Simulated assay, not measured.
Amino acid sequence: MPYDTSTAPQAFAALGHPGRLSVFRLLMRFAPRPVRPTEIAEALEMKPNTLSGYLSDLSQTGLITATREGRSLFYGVDMAQCDGLVSYLVNDCCRGRPEMCLSALPERETRPYRVLFLCSGNSARSIMAEALLNELGAGRFEAFSAGTRPSTEINPQTRALLERHGHLTAGLHPKDVTEFQGEGAPDFDFTFTVCDLAASEDCAPWIGQPLSAHWGLPDPVKATGSEAERALAFAQTYDALRRRIEVFTALPIEKLDRLSLQQKIDDLSDI
Protein backbone atom coordinates (compact mmCIF):
# COMPACT_ATOMS: atom_id res chain seq x y z
CA MET A 1 0.00 0.00 0.00
CA PRO A 2 1.46 3.41 -0.93
CA TYR A 3 1.41 5.92 1.91
CA ASP A 4 -0.13 9.35 1.44
CA THR A 5 -2.15 11.83 3.45
CA SER A 6 -5.03 9.35 3.73
CA THR A 7 -3.12 6.14 4.58
CA ALA A 8 -0.10 7.37 6.55
CA PRO A 9 -2.13 8.69 9.53
CA GLN A 10 -3.56 5.19 10.07
CA ALA A 11 -0.06 3.72 10.27
CA PHE A 12 1.21 6.43 12.60
CA ALA A 13 -1.86 6.05 14.79
CA ALA A 14 -1.25 2.31 15.06
CA LEU A 15 2.34 2.88 16.14
CA GLY A 16 1.21 5.61 18.54
CA HIS A 17 -0.29 3.05 20.93
CA PRO A 18 2.24 1.68 23.49
CA GLY A 19 1.02 -1.90 23.17
CA ARG A 20 1.04 -1.99 19.38
CA LEU A 21 4.40 -0.21 19.32
CA SER A 22 5.91 -2.85 21.64
CA VAL A 23 4.70 -5.60 19.30
CA PHE A 24 6.11 -3.81 16.26
CA ARG A 25 9.45 -3.22 17.96
CA LEU A 26 9.76 -6.88 18.91
CA LEU A 27 9.00 -7.98 15.35
CA MET A 28 11.57 -5.50 14.08
CA ARG A 29 14.22 -6.94 16.40
CA PHE A 30 13.66 -10.37 14.84
CA ALA A 31 13.36 -9.08 11.26
CA PRO A 32 13.48 -10.49 8.70
CA ARG A 33 12.57 -13.69 10.57
CA PRO A 34 8.81 -13.95 11.32
CA VAL A 35 7.61 -14.84 14.81
CA ARG A 36 4.79 -16.98 16.20
CA PRO A 37 2.09 -15.16 18.20
CA THR A 38 2.79 -17.44 21.17
CA GLU A 39 6.43 -16.26 21.19
CA ILE A 40 5.33 -12.62 21.02
CA ALA A 41 2.81 -13.03 23.83
CA GLU A 42 5.36 -14.79 26.04
CA ALA A 43 8.11 -12.24 25.41
CA LEU A 44 5.83 -9.26 26.07
CA GLU A 45 3.79 -10.97 28.81
CA MET A 46 0.65 -10.09 26.86
CA LYS A 47 -2.74 -11.80 26.86
CA PRO A 48 -3.44 -13.68 23.59
CA ASN A 49 -6.69 -11.83 22.86
CA THR A 50 -4.99 -8.46 23.43
CA LEU A 51 -2.13 -9.45 21.15
CA SER A 52 -4.56 -10.63 18.48
CA GLY A 53 -6.14 -7.18 18.37
CA TYR A 54 -2.78 -5.44 18.10
CA LEU A 55 -1.63 -7.76 15.30
CA SER A 56 -4.86 -7.14 13.41
CA ASP A 57 -4.48 -3.36 13.70
CA LEU A 58 -0.86 -3.45 12.54
CA SER A 59 -1.71 -5.78 9.66
CA GLN A 60 -4.38 -3.38 8.41
CA THR A 61 -1.75 -0.65 8.07
CA GLY A 62 0.47 -2.89 5.91
CA LEU A 63 3.40 -2.62 8.33
CA ILE A 64 3.32 -6.32 9.20
CA THR A 65 2.22 -9.43 7.32
CA ALA A 66 1.08 -12.89 8.34
CA THR A 67 2.21 -16.13 6.72
CA ARG A 68 1.11 -19.69 7.42
CA GLU A 69 3.38 -22.70 7.59
CA GLY A 70 1.31 -25.83 8.12
CA ARG A 71 -0.81 -25.14 11.16
CA SER A 72 1.42 -22.35 12.45
CA LEU A 73 0.87 -18.66 11.80
CA PHE A 74 3.86 -16.31 11.72
CA TYR A 75 3.99 -12.51 11.78
CA GLY A 76 6.81 -10.39 10.39
CA VAL A 77 7.61 -6.81 9.47
CA ASP A 78 7.08 -5.77 5.85
CA MET A 79 10.35 -3.90 5.37
CA ALA A 80 9.29 -2.38 2.03
CA GLN A 81 6.16 -0.92 3.62
CA CYS A 82 8.15 0.46 6.57
CA ASP A 83 10.60 2.03 4.14
CA GLY A 84 7.67 3.56 2.28
CA LEU A 85 6.22 5.07 5.44
CA VAL A 86 9.54 6.57 6.53
CA SER A 87 10.23 7.84 3.02
CA TYR A 88 6.82 9.52 2.91
CA LEU A 89 7.50 11.30 6.20
CA VAL A 90 11.06 12.38 5.34
CA ASN A 91 10.26 13.46 1.80
CA ASP A 92 7.27 15.44 2.98
CA CYS A 93 9.34 16.98 5.76
CA CYS A 94 12.20 17.94 3.40
CA ARG A 95 9.90 19.13 0.60
CA GLY A 96 12.19 17.66 -2.05
CA ARG A 97 15.26 19.25 -0.48
CA PRO A 98 17.05 16.36 1.29
CA GLU A 99 20.01 18.55 2.23
CA MET A 100 17.74 20.11 4.88
CA CYS A 101 17.61 16.76 6.69
CA LEU A 102 21.07 15.52 5.86
CA SER A 103 22.72 18.65 7.17
CA ALA A 104 21.35 17.83 10.61
CA LEU A 105 23.13 14.47 10.69
CA PRO A 106 26.43 14.54 12.61
CA GLU A 107 29.54 13.45 10.76
CA ARG A 108 30.87 10.10 11.93
CA GLU A 109 34.16 10.43 13.79
CA THR A 110 37.17 8.62 12.40
CA ARG A 111 37.49 5.42 14.44
CA PRO A 112 36.91 1.68 14.06
CA TYR A 113 33.30 0.56 13.68
CA ARG A 114 32.02 -0.43 17.11
CA VAL A 115 29.98 -3.64 17.24
CA LEU A 116 28.08 -5.14 20.19
CA PHE A 117 27.05 -8.81 20.28
CA LEU A 118 24.21 -9.66 22.65
CA CYS A 119 22.92 -12.92 24.07
CA SER A 120 21.41 -13.99 27.37
CA GLY A 121 24.33 -15.50 29.32
CA ASN A 122 27.29 -13.94 27.44
CA SER A 123 29.30 -17.11 28.08
CA ALA A 124 29.43 -18.75 24.62
CA ARG A 125 27.93 -17.34 21.40
CA SER A 126 28.45 -13.63 21.97
CA ILE A 127 31.90 -14.23 23.45
CA MET A 128 32.89 -16.22 20.35
CA ALA A 129 31.61 -13.41 18.12
CA GLU A 130 33.53 -10.78 20.09
CA ALA A 131 36.78 -12.75 19.78
CA LEU A 132 36.24 -13.49 16.09
CA LEU A 133 35.48 -9.93 15.04
CA ASN A 134 38.32 -8.44 17.03
CA GLU A 135 40.68 -10.76 15.15
CA LEU A 136 39.12 -10.80 11.67
CA GLY A 137 38.32 -7.09 11.70
CA ALA A 138 41.38 -5.85 13.58
CA GLY A 139 41.94 -2.13 12.96
CA ARG A 140 38.60 -1.65 11.20
CA PHE A 141 36.22 -3.01 13.84
CA GLU A 142 36.12 -2.96 17.63
CA ALA A 143 33.92 -5.69 19.10
CA PHE A 144 32.19 -5.98 22.47
CA SER A 145 29.75 -8.49 23.94
CA ALA A 146 27.23 -8.50 26.77
CA GLY A 147 24.39 -10.51 28.24
CA THR A 148 20.90 -9.67 29.40
CA ARG A 149 21.38 -12.21 32.19
CA PRO A 150 25.15 -12.68 32.23
CA SER A 151 26.85 -15.76 33.65
CA THR A 152 29.57 -15.44 36.25
CA GLU A 153 32.27 -16.78 33.89
CA ILE A 154 32.90 -17.89 30.31
CA ASN A 155 31.80 -21.43 29.60
CA PRO A 156 34.93 -23.64 29.86
CA GLN A 157 34.26 -25.26 26.47
CA THR A 158 34.00 -21.82 24.88
CA ARG A 159 37.35 -20.76 26.28
CA ALA A 160 39.02 -24.03 25.26
CA LEU A 161 37.63 -23.79 21.70
CA LEU A 162 38.79 -20.20 21.27
CA GLU A 163 42.27 -21.03 22.53
CA ARG A 164 42.52 -24.00 20.16
CA HIS A 165 41.80 -21.59 17.30
CA GLY A 166 44.51 -19.22 18.50
CA HIS A 167 42.30 -16.48 19.98
CA LEU A 168 43.47 -14.48 22.99
CA THR A 169 41.02 -15.04 25.85
CA ALA A 170 42.71 -13.22 28.75
CA GLY A 171 40.42 -10.18 28.59
CA LEU A 172 37.17 -11.97 27.76
CA HIS A 173 34.51 -12.17 30.46
CA PRO A 174 30.70 -11.98 30.74
CA LYS A 175 29.34 -8.46 31.06
CA ASP A 176 25.92 -7.08 31.87
CA VAL A 177 24.24 -5.19 29.05
CA THR A 178 23.72 -2.21 31.37
CA GLU A 179 27.47 -1.54 31.18
CA PHE A 180 26.88 -0.35 27.61
CA GLN A 181 23.86 1.84 28.29
CA GLY A 182 23.48 5.32 29.68
CA GLU A 183 25.91 8.16 30.16
CA GLY A 184 29.52 7.35 29.35
CA ALA A 185 28.69 4.26 27.29
CA PRO A 186 30.32 3.90 23.87
CA ASP A 187 28.22 4.65 20.82
CA PHE A 188 27.81 1.63 18.56
CA ASP A 189 27.53 1.35 14.81
CA PHE A 190 26.08 -2.18 14.87
CA THR A 191 24.36 -4.43 17.40
CA PHE A 192 23.70 -8.12 16.78
CA THR A 193 21.61 -10.45 18.91
CA VAL A 194 22.76 -14.06 18.68
CA CYS A 195 20.02 -15.70 20.74
CA ASP A 196 16.24 -15.46 20.59
CA LEU A 197 15.93 -14.59 24.29
CA ALA A 198 18.10 -11.49 23.93
CA ALA A 199 16.22 -10.45 20.78
CA SER A 200 12.88 -10.70 22.54
CA GLU A 201 13.93 -8.46 25.44
CA ASP A 202 13.36 -4.74 25.10
CA CYS A 203 16.57 -2.78 25.61
CA ALA A 204 16.82 0.96 25.99
CA PRO A 205 17.70 2.86 22.79
CA TRP A 206 21.38 2.54 21.98
CA ILE A 207 23.65 5.56 21.82
CA GLY A 208 24.55 6.28 18.21
CA GLN A 209 21.41 4.67 16.74
CA PRO A 210 23.27 1.59 15.44
CA LEU A 211 22.04 -0.74 12.73
CA SER A 212 20.91 -4.02 14.25
CA ALA A 213 20.23 -7.56 13.10
CA HIS A 214 19.28 -10.89 14.64
CA TRP A 215 21.82 -13.68 14.04
CA GLY A 216 20.08 -16.26 16.20
CA LEU A 217 21.89 -19.55 16.81
CA PRO A 218 21.12 -22.54 19.09
CA ASP A 219 22.80 -22.34 22.48
CA PRO A 220 25.69 -24.85 22.49
CA VAL A 221 25.73 -24.76 26.29
CA LYS A 222 22.36 -26.54 26.25
CA ALA A 223 23.54 -29.28 23.89
CA THR A 224 23.04 -32.82 25.18
CA GLY A 225 24.53 -36.18 24.32
CA SER A 226 28.06 -37.49 24.51
CA GLU A 227 31.11 -35.31 25.11
CA ALA A 228 31.88 -35.45 21.39
CA GLU A 229 28.33 -34.38 20.50
CA ARG A 230 28.48 -31.43 22.87
CA ALA A 231 31.87 -30.41 21.50
CA LEU A 232 30.43 -30.57 17.98
CA ALA A 233 27.66 -28.13 18.99
CA PHE A 234 30.29 -25.60 20.11
CA ALA A 235 32.31 -26.12 16.93
CA GLN A 236 29.26 -25.64 14.71
CA THR A 237 28.35 -22.42 16.52
CA TYR A 238 31.88 -21.10 16.12
CA ASP A 239 31.96 -22.00 12.41
CA ALA A 240 28.57 -20.35 11.76
CA LEU A 241 29.67 -17.13 13.46
CA ARG A 242 33.00 -17.16 11.64
CA ARG A 243 31.27 -17.44 8.23
CA ARG A 244 28.96 -14.53 9.01
CA ILE A 245 31.69 -12.34 10.43
CA GLU A 246 34.02 -13.01 7.49
CA VAL A 247 31.32 -11.77 5.11
CA PHE A 248 30.44 -8.87 7.40
CA THR A 249 34.02 -7.61 7.58
CA ALA A 250 34.25 -7.74 3.78
CA LEU A 251 31.21 -5.49 3.25
CA PRO A 252 31.95 -2.09 1.64
CA ILE A 253 30.26 -0.32 4.54
CA GLU A 254 31.48 3.14 3.57
CA LYS A 255 29.90 2.82 0.11
CA LEU A 256 26.47 1.51 1.14
CA ASP A 257 23.49 3.61 2.17
CA ARG A 258 21.78 2.74 5.44
CA LEU A 259 18.93 0.73 3.92
CA SER A 260 21.23 -1.30 1.67
CA LEU A 261 23.56 -2.03 4.57
CA GLN A 262 20.62 -3.11 6.74
CA GLN A 263 19.56 -5.60 4.06
CA LYS A 264 23.11 -6.96 3.85
CA ILE A 265 23.45 -7.62 7.57
CA ASP A 266 19.94 -9.12 7.74
CA ASP A 267 20.87 -11.55 4.97
CA LEU A 268 23.86 -12.78 6.95
CA SER A 269 21.52 -14.59 9.34
CA ASP A 270 20.95 -17.19 6.61
CA ILE A 271 24.64 -17.98 6.05
Rank of each mutant, 00 (worst) to 15 (best):
S6Q: 13
S151N: 11
E135C: 04
P37D: 11
V221S: 11
D257Y: 02
L133S: 03
D257W: 00
G76H: 05
G208H: 08
S260M: 11
P32D: 03
F234I: 01
S22M: 03
P218R: 10
Y113E: 05
W206N: 03
P18C: 12
C82F: 07
L256H: 02
F12R: 14
R244A: 05
V115S: 09
R71D: 13
F141P: 09
V247M: 14
N134T: 05
A8G: 08
L21F: 11
H214N: 12
D202T: 11
D92K: 13
R159Q: 15
A146H: 07
V177S: 10
P220S: 02
W206H: 09
T169L: 04
E130L: 06
T65D: 12
Y54E: 15
L21G: 06
G96D: 09
E201P: 00
T193E: 07
F74S: 01
E99A: 12
F188S: 04
P252D: 03
G121D: 04
S87V: 00
C203G: 05
L211C: 07
D196N: 13
S212M: 10
L132Y: 00
Y54H: 15
A231R: 11
A129L: 02
R243L: 11
Y113H: 11
S120P: 00
S59E: 14
R68L: 08
R230G: 04
Q10I: 04
R29A: 11
E163Q: 14
C94I: 14
F12G: 10
E201G: 00
V86W: 07
L217N: 02
P150C: 06
L197M: 13
T61A: 10
C101V: 14
T224A: 12
P2H: 15
Q262T: 13
Y88M: 08
L259E: 12
A199Q: 04
D257Q: 07
R71P: 03
M1S: 14
E153M: 11
P156H: 08
D196G: 12
Y238F: 15
A131K: 04
I40F: 10
A43E: 05
A80K: 10
P150R: 01
L168G: 15
T50K: 09
R140W: 02
I265Y: 11
V177M: 07
G53L: 13
A129F: 01
Q60A: 15
G225I: 06
R29Y: 01
E229F: 05
I245L: 15
T61M: 04
P32A: 05
A199M: 02
Q60T: 12
M28P: 00
G16E: 08
Q262I: 03
Q236E: 14
P2Y: 12
F144E: 10
A198P: 03
G208Q: 08
T5H: 14
F190Y: 14
L15K: 10
L105H: 04
A160D: 13
L44A: 08
D270T: 12
A66D: 03
A66C: 12
R29P: 01
N49Q: 13
T224C: 06
A199E: 02
S103G: 14
L161F: 06
D189P: 07
R71C: 00
F180I: 03
F248R: 09
E201H: 12
F192R: 04
E135I: 01
I40V: 15
G70M: 06
P9W: 10
G139C: 05
L55C: 09
A199H: 00
L256C: 05
